[in-house]
């Protein structure tokens, strides 16, 4: 009765070989077409069309309840889509799983869980380990390297509830690094972190970019958008604007996205003025 998959099923015959932007689809990390998500009667996302360029840091920006996290979750099949199609490098998600890393919001897990920081990072490698196999030494070492890379090497043996919020976020980031994906989704990676962590995350984002990876992150702090991200996707139920930060992150588009929230706009205007 509920036809959620008919629209998402993609057969080779009706998959266009090129994206709307004219690129071959396998060069487009994420192509979202007509994505609509509704919880019961309420639309949460509405006809979203969006193609992410490869090798860029992309911020999803919008007011509370605009559907930013839902966009990521719907792309990753974590919430059901009402209609629409999502392709990763030209193929549906279930065939590209190993290319995609996901950093959920920090609140989404139980931090009392009896695992160490290293254990959490090792989980990022599970997709490559295979069923019923123990985690081999090379995976353990990769995880440790990822942990060191985010500056958390000294905390490998700590239980995760004994880490600060920023350190927890860095553990999550290390887990994503350990996954070694081509496209990363991050849900509010900067939420509630200390300055050192913020710096570390930015450094890692830049490293990922120079490695040709694509990062799509939900971001809350308008002031830092121009500084941290190359591209921006302004969302308020639908895509208000998308494109390179310099041309898209304008006060006019922000006005459209955030409406009359003057305090936020003032912040953003301040940020823009200081950048240019």
């Amino acid at each position: 009765m509920i036809d959620t998959h008919a629209a998402t099923d993609v057969t080779s015959t009706d998959t266009p070989a090129v994206s709307r932007g004219g690129l071959p689809l396998d060069r487009v990390p994420l192509a979202v077409h007509d994505l609509t998500v509704a919880y019961y009667r309420k639309p949460v996302l509405w006809d979203v069309d969006f193609e992410a360029p490869e090798g860029k840091l992309i911020a999803i920006v919008g007011p509370n309840g605009a559907g930013k996290s839902t966009l990521i979750k719907a792309a990753l099949d974590l919430v059901p889509r009402t209609s629409g199609r999502v392709l990763f490098y030209g193929k549906p998600y279930r065939r590209q799983r190993q290319l995609i890393g996901y950093v959920p919001q920090r609140e989404s897990v139980d931090w009392d869980f009896p695992v160490t920081a290293l254990d959490v990072v090792v989980m990022g490698r599970y997709g490559q380990v295979g069923w019923c196999r123990p985690v081999g030494r090379q995976h353990r070492e990769a995880a440790r390297a990822a942990l060191e890379h985010v500056g958390m090497g000294d905390f490998a043996g700590r239980q995760i509830s004994q880490l600060s919020g920023g350190q927890q976020q860095r553990v999550f980031l290390a887990r994503a690094l350990a996954q070694d994906a081509r496209l990363y989704f991050m849900d509010e990676p900067f939420a509630g972190v200390d300055a050192a962590t913020e710096k570390a995350i930015v450094r890692i984002l830049h490293e990922l970019r120079s490695g040709g990876r694509t990062v799509i992150a939900v971001h809350h702090d308008l002031q830092t958008v121009p500084e941290y991200f190359d591209h921006v996707l302004l969302v308020n139920l639908r895509v208000v604007a998308a494109g390179p930060t310099a041309s898209t992150f304008t006060s006019e588009n922000l006005q459209k996205t955030f409406g009359g929230r003057l305090t936020l706009l003032d912040q953003a205007a301040h940020a823009l003025a200081s950048r240019r």
Binding site: R97, M123, Y126
Partner: peptide, 22 residues
């Protein structure tokens, strides 16, 4: 013993488990 790591990850972070294909 056989499914230790799968159980661990799907208990700790079901969303991650799903994205890992578990």
């Amino acid at each position: 013993l056989l499914f230790y790591k799968e159980l661990k990850v799907s208990t700790f972070d079901p969303a991650l488990a799903k994205t890992l294909g578990i």
